[in-house]
């Protein structure tokens, strides 16, 4: 599906097993849009990390809704691919988290927090907003050749 045709949309349940359904759907969408493997892989990684964060944390705690809604919207082209993850879970801006400190040794290394690092390092652009009780996280990846051009967003 191309950008001109509007986003491809998938609604997910809040069970972790939904990631498998997400990846099956995603594979079909990127193939249909002619997204090259490197670009498709970059956005798949971002999407998996973002959705995993939502499914693990957004619906936990007393403040969380008991009617979870998660939606993924894709805008795909051979040169630029974006995914927006929308959820009605507790407000969480991953960009507000400080960047992880460099790892120095296994003894002191933490075992978590890698997902947000991967989104930041992989996507050319990441945006977050909270609107009408929903988190909107948009991640944009660009084809590698474009990513290496001096005009590309960093």
């Amino acid at each position: 599906m191309t950008e001109a045709a509007g986003p491809a949309v998938l609604r997910l349940g809040s069970d972790l097993s939904e990631v498998a359904r997400l990846n099956d759907w995603y594979a079909g969408e990127v193939a249909g849009a002619g997204v090259p493997p490197d670009l498709a892989g970059d956005l798949k990684l971002c999407l998996n990390e973002a959705v995993a964060n939502v499914l693990f944390y957004a619906f936990e705690g007393d403040d969380a809704t008991d009617a979870p809604e998660v939606e993924v919207r894709l805008l795909l082209s051979p040169f630029r691919a974006s995914a927006e993850v929308i959820d009605n879970g507790i407000a969480f801006d991953p960009l507000s988290r400080p960047r992880a400190a460099p790892l120095t040794d296994l003894a002191t290394a933490g075992i978590g927090g890698f997902g947000i690092t991967l989104i930041r390092e992989t996507a050319a652009e990441v945006r977050y907003r909270r609107a009408e009780g929903r988190n909107h996280l948009t991640m944009v990846c660009v084809a590698r050749a474009e990513a290496q051009s001096p005009d590309a967003p960093r």
């Binding site: 990684l45 990390e49 290394a109 075992i111 978590g112 997902g115 690092t117």
Partner: peptide
């Protein structure tokens, strides 16, 4: 395919 949760398992094992 390797996602962060896989990285987590590797670090948790290596420690």
């Amino acid at each position: 395919f390797l996602a962060s949760i896989g990285v987590r398992v590797l670090v948790k094992t290596a420690k």
